[in-house]
Design a protein around this nucleic acid. Sequence first.
DNA 1: CACTTGACCTGTCCGC
DNA 2: TGCGGACAGGTCAAGT
Length: 297
Amino acid sequence: MPELPEVETIRIGLQTLLPGSPVLSVDFDWPKSFPNAEADARQFLVGSRVVAVSRRAKVLIIGLDSGYSLVIHLKMTGQLVYVPGAAKNPSKERFGAGHPSDSLVGSLPDKSTRVTITFQDKAVLYFNDQRKFGWVRLLPSVEVPHIDFMKRFGPEPLEDTFTQKAFTTQLTRRARSRIKAALLDQTIIAGIGNIYADESLWAAKIHPETRVKDISPARLKVLRTAIIDVLSLSIAKGGSTNKNYVNAEGKKGSYMDFAHVYNRTGQPCDRCGNPIQKIRSAGRGTHICLTCQREPS
DNA sequence: CACTTGACCTGTCCGC
DNA sequence: TGCGGACAGGTCAAGT
């Protein structure tokens, strides 16, 4: 699920919710969800406090005062949901009666719960992941930026380093690729996934199958602005809940109400009124307006 | 190189 | 109602 706006929304939530109480215990039901828990969890997780929550691309980093960090990738269906007081009443409450109507999660833990972190103040952080693709790892904080996949990420699209020059330079590394594939390549630009690739390309009026080298500098300028606008708006709306994304409080995001093409197959294009089409590009379902987004030349 | 396919998993939806 | 297949926000590795 989560692309940059969803992960960032979770980060913002956890940043205010987590720091404070020390970790009391940690449990997990699916070893692949927490590969090195046995080795390190007791000594470097239990008893430590969260000091900060950060994000790089689609990866969340929960820094602990033990000098270790929880590094988390939610992949397709991961959720991180914080429930204050959950440990007091293991059998009821949580998201039971009275929970907001924009909540998507029921009583926790449920059958998708993979990792449970309980804090001394009775709050519980649940890592749920229906498809079991996501993972949590505990690593020394100083090593986190030097992990292979962290080093390879391209620029963060919402930081000052994402200049037009940086964008163009990065794209030349995939000059012969199709633009959609390039946008999904995390080493070119960090954090864009299937939803925001489609939305950005619609906004910039570029057909996803266009070769990067065939896109004019002027059009690439429009694209960079579109990426920034689309991601920023989505963060402002709390991300996209297409299926099961929720924020740190278990609530849905509303960006899908503002999407122009994603998941809108057959509906009229907001610019020209012609029906949105669905094709396959870069191996992914891809939504386009064939009238607005010109065929690759 | 760049693209496709298959893996990793579970769940849902659609057509028959 | 049941069954099979396609498909789903992400990323790897391997094959073409």
